[in-house]
């Protein structure tokens, strides 16, 4: 996983609530057995006016011009600004894979769905929960200002706008540590292999029917 420390990123506003993971990456692309290559199909049905299929070369597909990702001013965006309950629905990790592969490293929203929220951290994508008021303000500023960027600093857990105003966000120490260092969580867990084995032995004595 790529470490995340800080970022000065162009912001792209996606102004709708309850964006589900089927919308983020439609099911036909889930047939891939790889982790990479999903970026061109991110928000496929909202982005293109034809029906996308896996393996399609997207460079010449017809675009839905009104969709934010297709607008010139948001090309190269690394921060996705979103509304409530972002990432609801299916647990598919292909959603954060597509978001990361497209180039986003940060998503700011008033709330996220639980499984998607957890999946982001595993892929070097930082989901930030901000109050509805702050998110409203960011939407207004972003839409009013071409080239609107935010500085996101994980070490200090802050997001700063071009005017220098800032807010702080929460993250668990464990997730912060993993993200800052780009750590493989499995390796960390296996440092506790003896404790897992000890738990397993007791568990097997208490509930032998759970084994085999």
């Amino acid at each position: 996983m790529k470490p995340f420390t800080y970022l000065d990123g162009l912001v792209c506003p996606l102004d709708r609530a309850n964006v589900d993971t089927d919308a983020i990456i439609p099911k036909q692309f889930l047939k891939s057995i790889k982790r990479s290559g999903f970026g061109p199909y991110l928000f496929d049905e909202w982005r293109y006016s034809d029906v996308g299929e896996p393996g399609m070369d997207c460079t010449h597909r017809p675009l839905k011009k009104d969709f934010v990702l297709n607008q010139k001013r948001y090309q190269g965006a690394q921060v996705l600004l979103a509304r409530d309950n972002f990432g609801c629905g299916s647990s598919r990790e292909h959603a954060p894979w597509a978001i990361e592969d497209y180039g986003f490293r940060v998503i700011i929203a008033p709330s996220f769905a639980d499984i998607f929220f957890g999946n982001c951290y595993k892929n070097g994508v930082l989901p930030i929960v901000a109050s509805a008021e702050i998110v409203d303000q960011l939407f207004r500023e972003c839409e009013a200002t071409k080239g609107y960027t935010l500085r996101v600093d994980l070490e200090t857990q802050t997001v700063r706008n071009p005017a220098g105003e800032w807010f702080q966000f929460d993250i668990t120490p464990h997730r912060k540590h993993c993200l800052l260092n780009g750590l493989d969580e499995i390796g960390l867990t296996l440092q506790h292999a003896d404790e897992i084995k000890a738990f397993e032995r007791k568990h097997k004595v208490a509930q032998p029917w759970l084994f085999g």
Partner: peptide, 23 residues
Amino acid sequence: AHGIGTSEVEHVLATQTLVAKRS
């Protein structure tokens, strides 16, 4: 019982555990 992402599928395969916080 709950759903997990693919990174967690790998984590469970490798360690029989999940890193999680109480809901």
